[in-house]
Amino acid sequence: MSRGLGVLVVGAGHYGSVHADALARAAGVRLAGVVDDDARRAHRLAGHHDVPAWTDLDVAIEQSGADVAAVVVPTVHHADVAAHALRGGLHVVVEKPVCLDMADVHRLDAEALRQGKVIDVISQRRFQAGIYAAKQAVDAGVLGRVTSAQCDTSVWRDATYFTESPWRGDPARGGGNLFNHGMHALDLLLWFLGDAQEVAGWRSASRVPGVAVEELLVATLRFDEVLATLHASLVSFPGNRMRLTVTGERGTLDLDGGDATLVHLDAVTGEVVRRSWPSADPDTALRAQYEDLVHVVAGVRSPRVGLAAGARTVLTASALLTSAARGGSPVEVETPALGGRPTVVTGAAATSAPL
């Protein structure tokens, strides 16, 4: 078996299984083992992949020979587990959303700098081939001056979505439509457009008794030179829809799932040009993010996502929910500073600041 970059999956729930499957198929990495405080769950997932299992993270770090910890525990525990792994000498990749508040983000940033380790955030849609190709085209200016964007991320979830996993309905534990389901779409919107300066949101409460989170959010976002809308829903039958349209003075980009279509005027001839890129599914894209991590850890390139981008998405989502709680009053979005430098990103061709 090839050694590769050893990744220890911390958290053996549903998403831990998704990460383990991706690692088992990715080039240049290996699944070094599984950690979970539930021994039966840890051994079940580890046994499926014929790797060791542990219930103690310190023991796993010592015995696994891992280089990286993939933190796939409930969001409320992300910061503690990631900081623990960093102190143990591992690089860290954290499932989205990276944390629930900026205090934890700053704590992770400081620990990563102190230990000299990489910290990255999962956002695999950036690694879907069609989306990435479209991003490069937009960065090259084929749309001209970007003026607007519309983002729709809609799924259908019945009441069991909350009753079977009560944390999903508790914002203090990382639950919520936007913080779970909507984060990938919001991350793409910010990746294409840069930092949102001001947002306004409206929400409808869950139909499930005792659930405190929103099931539908409709919002507007104001960027430096761009206006955008966001629709995030758990009650859109049959669901499974993720669409992003970015419009400029010389063209329009449409993302549907991972497929991309770009129609624009040629800068020289003025003729209409139509380009399209099919894309891989999100699971394949997760594998691609792990394969890219090999080069990030080696210092060959900066993370395509990184802690700064993860923080921006959390801050924007928090501002949207604050606005919705205030009946749609506009809220300015804070710009974080990490590693002693600001993470300001402006313009439609912005990319995430490397850490």
Rank of each mutant, 00 (worst) to 15 (best):
L5F: 06
L8E: 02
G11C: 10
A12Q: 08
V29W: 01
A32S: 12
G33C: 10
V34W: 02
V35S: 00
D36W: 09
R41D: 08
R41S: 13
L45T: 03
A46M: 10
A46N: 05
G47F: 07
V51I: 06
A53T: 02
D58C: 05
D58F: 02
E62W: 02
E62Q: 10
H84L: 10
L86Y: 00
R87G: 04
G88F: 00
H91C: 05
V92L: 07
V93F: 02
V98M: 07
V98Q: 03
L100G: 12
M102A: 14
V105H: 06
H106Q: 13
L108M: 15
E111Q: 15
E111V: 11
A112E: 03
G116L: 08
K117L: 14
V118N: 00
I119C: 05
V121G: 07
V121Q: 07
S123M: 14
F127G: 01
A129T: 15
G130S: 06
G130Q: 04
A133D: 10
A137V: 03
V138I: 13
A140V: 07
G141K: 05
L143G: 02
G144N: 02
D152N: 09
D152P: 00
V155H: 05
W156D: 10
T160M: 06
T163L: 12
S165T: 13
W167C: 05
D170I: 08
H181Q: 12
G182H: 04
M183C: 08
L189S: 00
L193P: 01
D195K: 03
A196T: 02
A196I: 05
V199K: 07
G201V: 07
G201S: 10
R203P: 05
A205Y: 03
S206F: 06
E214R: 06
R222N: 14
D224N: 05
E225K: 14
V226M: 09
V226L: 10
A228S: 15
A228F: 12
T229E: 12
T229W: 05
H231N: 12
H231A: 11
S233Q: 08
V235M: 13
S236G: 03
F237S: 13
N240H: 14
R241C: 11
M242C: 11
M242T: 08
T245K: 09
V246L: 08
G257P: 07
D259N: 14
A260C: 10
H264D: 03
T269F: 09
E271N: 12
R275L: 13
A280R: 13
T284Q: 14
A285C: 10
A285P: 06
A285S: 13
L286Q: 04
V297S: 01
V297C: 07
V297T: 01
A298H: 04
G299N: 07
V300R: 12
R301C: 15
A309C: 09
G310M: 07
L315Y: 01
A317M: 11
L321K: 06
L321F: 10
G327D: 07
E334H: 13
A337D: 11
L338V: 09
T346D: 08
A350N: 03
S352E: 05
A353R: 11
